[in-house]
Design a protein around this nucleic acid. Structure first.
Length: 389
RNA sequence: GGGCGGAUGUCCGAGUGGUUAAAGGAGACGGGCUGUAAACCCGUUGGCUAUGCCUACGCAGGUUCGAAUCCUGCUCCGCCCA
């Protein structure tokens, strides 16, 4: 029993809520591996560091012998979690969902132990007859659903709430019934949905799950929740240099929280903010790409961003030279995915360098022999080597 | 069923006949500065075969020398009353 108490204390550490009090310890005391649920929405197929906070917690459960039930919300994705914003999302095709689900698993497995995961899709059970939907929807009332913070606000403000949106928490809750979850994890913004899972499980005569919520990781802007749609995320499969640079971009004020939530450590007191941030970036890259990549990413940053030199290796851009002068905006546009008008503006702004020499707005046509093998640079970070075909 | 309001560039949002490729803000990008890809300052931000041309203000027509702005029809959305 004291083992259960220790485990419960460990597993609920740095969680915001672990509800109801004592329930986790009771479940752990049952001696049986627990089924720990996490639902992922397969619309945006990228696991980012915000997910990692929760995935790490799942990993801790796995390391103590428990089973993670990963639910791919292929059916709920049709609804879209109504978290504040406009409701309808584009419907995904079966192939897209398959592809996204695969990506998700792959990326989630950078944190989770694949040997202790059960992956399920909620279309397995949510595509139910109307009669079953009646049974499900009878288990909650409108007043209950309107307790949810964002629904309450929208209702008070007179902004529309579709029935479909109201149904979303019900479907998520039913997932818990279907997979017989003992524990469900989520960010604090999921608290309502997770708790509703308990109500619905009870209504179906099942044991109620423990609700464990983790703090929300702020994005690279240091303020808003990390999310792909806000563009303030760092994906776990992003290239090492990106991951490193983006981490360095976070405001100093967010560092302590990142250390805490991602590394499980407190901000090192003996390091200054600059060194602490570099250390953080390095640790994160190391974690997802390994030590050599972390080392290279740090060197790359030092070289490209701080020293402003060209990186060791850069993409090559093939060029057909025939002795004629080459129209530079076209080359820039092709090499970096800009429009030609944009490329001209870059030239005008002194952003384009050829072998380290800045070019100007008048350098529209350049002799071909000047380009072969040269390094073309736009801005501080975009490089490519021009190669004659 | 009735009444009212709306649809503008990546997003938010001004603009009610003519220097409007369309104010302002956000974002993004570029330059400066910096421990930083932060903050701050300055600039850019539809496309192109480029001192000009083309495309753009929900969709389709119409009025006019000229329309994002006026008229007609259509589509979609919101609010209120029942």
């Amino acid at each position: 029993m004291s083992q259960a108490r220790d485990d419960a204390a460990f597993l609920s550490r740095n969680a915001v809520d672990c509800l109801p009090g004592g329930a986790l310890e009771d479940k752990l005391g049952g001696g049986r591996p627990l089924r720990v649920k996490l639902g992922l929405d397969p619309t945006a197929p990228d696991i980012h560091l915000g997910h990692v906070v929760v995935l790490q917690k799942l990993r801790e459960f796995q390391d103590r012998g428990h089973l993670v039930v990963l639910i791919v919300g292929d059916y709920t994705a049709r609804v879209g979690d109504p978290s504040g914003r406009s409701s309808t999302r584009p419907q995904l095709s079966g192939e897209e969902i398959d592809a996204n689900a695969r990506t998700y698993q792959e990326q989630a497995f950078t944190v989770l132990d694949p040997a202790r995961v059960e992956v399920r899709r909620n279309s397995e059970w949510l595509d139910m007859p109307m009669e079953d939907l009646f049974r499900l929807t009878r288990t909650a009332t409108v007043a209950q659903l309107l307790e949810r913070d964002d629904f309450a606000k929208r209702y008070a403000a007179g902004t529309p709430i579709s029935i479909l949106e109201l149904l979303y928490p019900m479907m998520q809750a039913y997932d818990s019934v279907a997979v017989e979850s003992d524990v469900e994890l989520g960010g604090t913004d999921q608290k309502f949905n997770l708790l509703l899972g308990r109500d619905v499980q009870r209504a179906y005569g099942r044991p109620e799950q423990v609700v464990l919520t983790m703090p929300i990781l702020p994005g690279v802007d240091g303020e808003r929740k990390m999310s792909k749609s806000l563009g303030n995320h760092i994906g776990v499969s992003e290239p090492p240099e990106e991951m490193y640079g983006k981490t360095l971009r976070i405001p100093d004020t967010a560092m302590a929280l990142w250390y805490d939530l991602l590394l499980g450590e407190s901000l090192p007191a003996d390091l200054g903010p600059r060194d602490a941030k570099h250390a953080l970036a390095r640790r994160l890259v190391e974690r997802f790409h390994g030590e050599p990549a972390a080392h290279d990413a740090a060197a790359h940053f030092e070289r490209v961003v701080i020293q402003r030199d060209a990186p060791d290796d850069m993409p090559e851009h093939a060029l057909a030279l025939n002795g004629e002068p080459v129209h530079l905006p076209a080359v820039i546009a092709d090499a970096f995915g800009l429009s030609r008008s944009e490329a001209r503006r870059m030239l005008g702004q002194g952003a384009v360098k050829l072998d380290g020499t800045a070019l100007g707005a008048d350098d529209l046509d350049v002799p071909g022999d000047r380009l072969d093998g040269a390094v073309l640079q736009v801005g501080k970070r975009r490089f490519c080597r021009l190669v004659s075909t």
